[in-house]
């Protein structure tokens, strides 16, 4: 096989832009999705019945359909209802909704790990339900789900590649573009893969550092 990476070099600006867009998309969906996850997990246990029902349906629909089709629905179908979003915005919305459904389930499972006795101890000190949640339940629950949250985040980062299908110019889209110009399929996708790998490793490292700083208290092993 005759490898030639030289030709890719002149596309480095496009690659950098692709990386920036991938990271931005991941960041937006992660933050928005986590907010959806937190509020969804809270409302899903203590909200009124119709709200719980809505959240349950949302989770099941999103987690049991292809993300690619969700993104298409937002991009191609919403305009027929008068809401036309550019590719990047549509991808941000779709991936936030997508990540949110998984985040709700992860956070909910974290809240379930907190023993009732902790909630009782808080209540018996005169704290309100919200104070108990905010000061007693939340931090240990987040610690317990931190590893699974990290893996879900990595899946999100890799999943942003589907945004290429509505021509949002993220990393995978850049790869396809360069491939169509150079016909160097293997080299292009090897480079794209290496960049995804480096990104996930970097984020995992960052998450580990943040975790160590945020969750300092000793736990029984």
């Amino acid at each position: 096989m005759n490898l030639n990476f030289q030709q890719l070099w002149r596309y480095q600006d496009q690659f950098i832009e692709g990386v920036i867009l991938t990271v931005t998309l991941t960041g937006i969906a992660a933050v928005a999705g986590t907010l959806i996850g937190l509020s969804g997990a809270i409302l899903g246990r203590s909200g009124p019945q119709p709200v719980r029902w809505f959240i349950r349906s949302y989770i099941e629909i999103i987690r049991n359909t292809p993300a690619l089709i969700q993104i298409f629905l937002i991009f191609f179908v919403l305009p027929t209802f008068g809401l036309k979003l550019p590719p990047f915005e549509a991808a941000s919305v779709a991936l936030s909704i997508y990540f949110g459904a998984y985040a709700i389930e992860i956070i909910r499972s974290g809240l379930d790990t907190i023993p009732r006795s902790q909630i009782e101890a808080g209540a018996s000190l005169g704290l309100s339900r919200w104070e108990v949640f905010r000061h007693i339940v939340l931090a240990p629950a987040l610690r317990n789900i931190y590893p699974s949250f990290t893996s879900q985040f990595v899946l999100l980062l890799l999943g942003t590649s589907i945004a290429s299908q509505i021509s949002a110019e993220e990393l995978f889209h850049t790869g396809s573009f360069v491939e169509s110009r150079t016909y160097r399929s293997f080299e292009v996708y090897a480079v794209v893969c290496a960049i995804y790998f480096a990104l996930t490793m970097a984020f995992k490292g960052a998450f580990a550092v943040i975790g160590r700083l945020a969750f300092r208290w000793p736990v029984r092993r």
């Binding site: 006795s117 101890a121 808080g122 209540a123 000190l125 240990p140 736990v219």
Partner: peptide
């Protein structure tokens, strides 16, 4: 108000680990 006047100590301590 009640719980500010009546304290309880539990069998399993129930301290907040974090």
């Amino acid at each position: 108000q009640l719980r500010q006047r009546v304290g309880i100590v539990f069998q399993a301590f129930n301290l907040f680990p974090h």
